[in-house]
Computed example of a mutant assay.
Amino acid sequence: MIEAAMIWNEPNNKSHWDPEIDPDWSQFARMAILAADAIAIQNPALIKVLGGISPIDTGFMNRMKAYGVLDHVDAVAVHGFPLDWNLWQIHQWPEKIAEIRSVTDLPIWVSEVGVSTFGAEEVQLWGLRRTAELLKGKVERCQWYSLYDLPSAWEATTRHREAEGSSYYRHFYMGLLREDGTAKPALAEFARHTPELGLVQWFHFEDHRLDDAVAWMKRLGVTSLRTGLSWADRFRPNALDWFDRQMQALEDFDVTVTFCFTPEHRGVASHHTSPPLVPEEFAEFCAEMISRYAPRSGVRDRRLNVSASTV
């Protein structure tokens, strides 16, 4: 059920990894190496991806290279939202990819790129079309974020919430579908670019949208999906029942599963962005999930084509 395993999400973003506890990212690097090696033991054919970085930063990538992390993964990933959060313009995408190619020979995935409809739905339509022009066929994987708007009654997974001002509320308008399931103008444009463009959809614990999401993705021609399995959720009652249901529902897609989110009681600090008290425990979680959903005998070997087009 899993084609690739991504180790954490946006590790250089303070909304997902606490730089006050781990200012030089040495704890993250050790955890990432342990996780990558644990995944490889369970299934050496599985693609291992360093969690998508945001911002796109050669300094952070060089730091991971110096720590040896890049020797334990098969690809690196970047995230970009130039019309919403980043301090650069959308036409700079080729430059951003070239910067990362200058420091590593590993395949580069754009594992999250998107445009919110916070200001206007027409902006998302234009942004999707322009993103496809700039990235499709230029990187080894490109995945659009996301299928659904975040329900207004939920919280975005960021530590700083309303302190981010309007930036926080953009999290709720990233979908091609509105909260009520109706289509935005960009949905039809997205379908023009599948299967070359993949999709990102995070599913919350016991997410009521799962079955409808599967139906929509098949209708849109999506074959590549990135989602997540939360280490924190593993400690909920009936966690494996939910994980089983989620992964079974997604079995027809090429799934990249992101492992992240520290359980409050297993972190140096009691929040999901904290380094774990015992990094081996995160590696054990990754190994458990690979053993359950991508055992050695069950995976299709889809090693990346490193000779893909470059920017």
Rank of each mutant, 00 (worst) to 15 (best):
G137I: 10
G137W: 11
K138Q: 13
K138V: 02
K138C: 02
K138F: 01
V139S: 04
V139F: 05
V139Y: 02
E140I: 07
E140D: 11
E140L: 08
E140N: 12
R141E: 04
R141F: 07
R141T: 04
C142W: 05
C142S: 09
Q143G: 06
Q143T: 15
W144T: 09
W144C: 06
W144E: 08
Y145P: 00
Y145I: 04
Y145S: 05
L147I: 03
L147K: 02
L147V: 02
Y148L: 10
Y148F: 12
D149P: 04
L150P: 01
L150H: 00
L150M: 04
L150C: 00
P151E: 01
P151G: 01
S152Q: 15
S152R: 15
A153H: 15
A153Q: 14
W154D: 10
W154K: 07
W154R: 08
W154F: 10
E155T: 13
E155H: 11
A156R: 01
A156M: 00
A156W: 01
A156K: 00
T157K: 09
T157H: 12
T157P: 07
T157S: 10
T157V: 13
T158P: 06
T158K: 07
R159H: 09
R159W: 06
R159A: 09
H160I: 07
H160D: 13
H160F: 14
H160Q: 12
R161S: 04
R161Y: 03
E162V: 05
E162T: 08
A163R: 14
A163V: 10
A163I: 08
E164K: 03
E164F: 02
G165F: 08
G165Q: 07
G165H: 06
S166M: 14
S166N: 15
S166E: 15
